[in-house]
């Protein structure tokens, strides 16, 4: 049957950029008003910003950029960036990769898909990383893998706990097998850090999928998540296409993973900093 939808161009949900990514405040539209994708309520931009990009009506969590995330979680003026000088290359001369890197750099104003560094949260010094969905959907290539690995190695050497925020479409196809190898490399570094008896907290944010889910995102001692976040190994579209199975409502959300026992707690954004601070103090504070 002829339907209008037959002519719709399919869109990869994970690769697609929302229009507001072009500004320095990704994910939160700059217009005066914006409508919540979840409850469709019209919200004033200023209200949304005051509320940490959470819809005041229904509690929908808008995505944050890595810098916004660090600003929200770390104590003021404590963030010190590590390994900022690592830049991506195109080792396989993959078609379109160079242009895509350029565009992502322009849109996100970041050099790569993750920020790493040292900061204090609730007064406790720790190593932090925050991935950025604005940079090629936070996909993991050599630079992301290397920065995460160096972060864990340095944190192990300096006896620091690690707090990490994951957002990712998975391994970066454009770097081929080398991005797959980053999964093993980062996991090795997490293990090295863990074997020193140090704490690693991951916060899974929307969306965390693929090779990142199957490596350092799921290797935390404590795994937290934001409400409603999509967390998957194979994303919902992939499953629907390959299995021709319709997925139940709420499948692969943070709440679903909590029920299945893969997440320790689902923590709303406004309680996140306090929760992480408390956990850090419980592990690393003075006795």
């Amino acid at each position: 049957m002829l339907r209008k939808s037959n002519f719709k161009k399919s869109r990869n949900q994970l690769e697609g950029f929302s229009p507001n990514l072009h500004t320095d405040k990704p994910y939160v539209p700059q217009e005066l008003c914006t409508s919540c994708p979840s409850c469709k309520a019209m919200l004033f931009q200023s209200d949304l910003e005051e509320n940490n990009a959470v819809c005041p009506k229904c509690g929908h969590h808008f995505r944050l950029s890595a810098r916004q995330r660090i600003g929200l979680i770390c104590d003021e003026n404590t963030y010190e960036a590590w390994d900022e000088n690592l830049t991506p290359k195109d080792p396989l001369s993959f078609p379109g990769y160079g242009a895509k890197l350029k565009a992502s750099r322009f849109r996100s104003r970041e050099v790569e898909g993750v920020l790493t560094g040292k900061a204090a949260i609730g007064g406790v010094p720790c190593a932090v990383f925050a991935m950025d969905a604005g940079f090629m959907m936070g996909s993991m290539g050599s630079v992301v893998g290397e920065k995460i690995t160096r972060l864990f190695e340095r944190a192990a050497a300096e006896n620091l706990p690690v707090v990490g925020f994951t957002v990712s479409g998975g391994a970066r196809m454009q770097e081929g097998i080398l991005s797959l190898m980053q999964m093993a490399k980062t996991s090795g570094a997490v293990k090295l850090h863990s074997d020193k008896g140090l704490l690693y907290i991951t916060v899974l944010t929307d969306p965390t999928t693929g090779g990142v889910t199957a490596s350092f995102a799921m290797e935390g001692d404590i795994i937290l998540s934001e409400p409603g976040a999509l967390i998957a190994f194979a994303g919902p579209r992939v499953i629907e296409q390959t299995m021709r199975q319709k997925l139940p409502k709420g499948f692969q959300t943070a709440e679903f993973l909590l029920e299945k026992g893969f997440v320790d707690a689902v923590v709303p954004r406004k309680e996140l900093k306090e929760t992480i601070g408390r956990l850090l103090r419980l592990h690393c504070g003075e006795v």
Binding site: D195, S215, A234
Partner: peptide, 26 residues
């Protein structure tokens, strides 16, 4: 590839592979 389906996701495919990577390394 690893199996892609409802049961595999519900039982933590990503988590299972992540654990293997970590434990095999040492």
């Amino acid at each position: 590839g690893a199996f892609c389906g409802i049961g595999a996701e519900a039982r933590g495919e990503g988590s299972a592979i992540a654990e293997n990577l970590m434990e095999m390394m040492t």
